[in-house]
Amino acid sequence: MKKSSLILASAGALLLMAGIYLAFFVAPDAVVRIDDRELVRYSQKIFYFHVPVAETALVFLLLGGFFGAMYLGTRKRSYEQMSYAAVEIGFIFVILVMITGILWTRADWGVWWEWEPRLTTFLVLTLMYAGYFVLRSSVQEESAKARFGAIFSIIAAVNVPLTFMAGRLDSLKPVHPKVFTLQGASMEGPMLAAFLVSMFGMLLFATSLYIMRLDLLRAREDIEYLKEELEVG
């Protein structure tokens, strides 16, 4: 492992732990009132994990599209690897969003799945980016694989905000997520602090994963190349 990714990974891990501490011990608890009784919804704590994961996922997916465009413009192989690695990391985080989202839904609303706009949006994104990997594996020639991968990463990245916007149209009636009633109403003070620490930690952690993955892709490319050279003799 390279030094840079090691530092990033440790910094990210520390921040994430700090975020968990802040979330549980400093940030205010979510409270619901039922018949004059106050109930603390601890499930809301997953918010400090779920949302940073989601935002990290979006950052990397958009980055994938950006590097895809750079590849098409310059035809430099390194941009293609950067695009592919970004989509991979983004995809892992999208799946994490789904898992944490489903857990939260289950704990809060008592069902495993709810056709709620944002959850639906992420399900669509999961399927769309699954398509990206299926597409790549379905193209044999290396250069065509890179080209189509880059093109679809751009199309998908463009579609990400559109999917979010469509989710806000009236047909899917929003069930909620703005609804966790908090003592401090909007996000401020300790809650914001906990959120930002988690958010920043998640980004650092994801970036370290990204760098490692990129190194791996480059090494693999080098090995493939050397193998071919040996075969040809």
Binding site: V124, L125, L127, M128, A130, G131, V134, L135, S138, V139, Q140, A144, F148, I151, F152, I155, A156, N159, L162, T163, M165, A166, G167, L169, D170, S171, L172
Partner: peptide, 30 residues
């Protein structure tokens, strides 16, 4: 145009097309 260049050809189109078209579908249905 992309799917025709893949091994699976016509199987590929729905997989790529449907998620991308969903925002439009939502709006059209609405």
């Amino acid at each position: 145009t992309i799917s025709i260049n893949t091994k699976t050809r016509d199987l590929m189109l729905p997989i790529l097309f449907m998620p991308v078209i969903i925002p439009l579908l939502i709006a059209a249905v609405s």
